[in-house]
Write a protein that binds this DNA or RNA. Structure first.
Lengths: 197, 197
DNA sequence: GTCTATAATACGATAGAC
DNA sequence: GTCTATCGTATTATAGAC
């Protein structure tokens, strides 16, 4: 691979593992094997390299999101996205950046994160609207709000898992919200029947 | 105030604002006004000071949690804790630590975070069980799991808010999950009546 | 307990040859 | 494009006087 691409890949990995502030140009050099001169030739500053790496990490996230808006039963798509295998202890490569003061305070670094989250939100809104339309969710639930809730469950699940060094809380959190969604299905004739009416 | 206490307070603030890795002993000295000699007299290393500051931040969180298990209607307690005023753009002083590699990789620093989250979880489990017992939540919902879900909504809400530099997503996420909880109430005679039966 | 001085190392970058 | 050498600053302390 060319140095430039290798640098971006390496920085992407390191930013996922350690964030931005705690990743030094030296770390990138050592892991990638690319020399000092090369590195500063392609990326004049650490920040420039970080921007490229961040765009890359954001791009990684989007294919999965597009499946939210794919074919099939809305509730099934919701479950598939929510329960997709994820490394709970590594966290979200994009969401992680919000906790890095040097990212949070730099509009240029924060922008890709904001854009990515806006796209994910849009994906959720679409599938939630479809679920309401399909009679799988009560019509008095607000898809816009619920979309934020579901994103938060995943992002927060990572925090809980890392705190306990155990993926359990992550899985519990997402399973729990799925149960809640199912419990919030509109009452059907069948349901009322089961209740003995 | 004495130097020792002043150092802890200052470190607590800085760890909330900037995390651990990105807070230097120098930052603490400058904000607190405590001199170099004093500082290293009371806390031989940055890590020692961080442990003290972390314990302090954890302690800050607990009074609110105890209200979860207080008197009154369970669902009302749930709403009160969930909707309690919070600075969404600052994030959680405890949850934040999970994203700092230097904290995450240090069992001593991570331990108070894990303990705090375990306590919060316990508080949630109690009130959720009470809600089920009071007929405010369906009996087929698992309080243990739901507790993780609700914690995740708050922790993840901060992530969303910081990403967008807007408290909106935080409020949407928590309002959304509250709606969901309400929608997951057991069907009552009154409900069935409203449905025209 | 607090002060000032000092130090080893890492960070983030620049210079200039090839 | 890549290499080695160098630079100024910040970090995280330590030393030793008061």
């Amino acid at each position: 691979m060319e140095s430039r691409q290798l640098l971006i890949e390496t920085m992407s990995e390191l930013m996922w593992e350690r964030g931005y502030a705690d990743t030094s140009p030296r770390d990138v050099r050592e892991r990638s094997g690319v020399g000092q001169g090369s590195m500063y030739h392609h990326f004049p500053t650490k920040r420039d390299l970080a921007v490229a790496a961040l765009e890359r990490n954001v791009a990684d996230l989007l294919p999965a999101v597009s499946e939210l808006d794919g074919p099939g039963d809305p509730m099934a798509r919701i479950e598939a996205y929510l329960m997709r295998p994820r490394d709970a202890l590594k966290g979200c490569k994009v969401g992680r950046m919000t906790q890095d003061p040097q990212v949070r305070e730099d509009p240029v670094l924060l922008a890709p994160v904001a854009r990515a989250f806006a796209q994910v939100h849009l994906g959720w809104v679409k599938v939630l609207r479809a679920a309401v339309a399909a009679g799988e969710l009560r019509t008095d639930l607000d898809p816009e709000r619920l979309a934020h809730t579901l994103m938060a469950v995943l992002q927060g699940g990572y925090v809980l898992a890392i705190a306990q060094q155990d993926p359990g809380p992550f899985d519990a959190a997402r399973t729990g919200v799925l149960e809640l969604l199912r419990a919030a299905a509109p009452a059907t004739t069948d349901d009322r029947h089961k209740m003995g009416e």
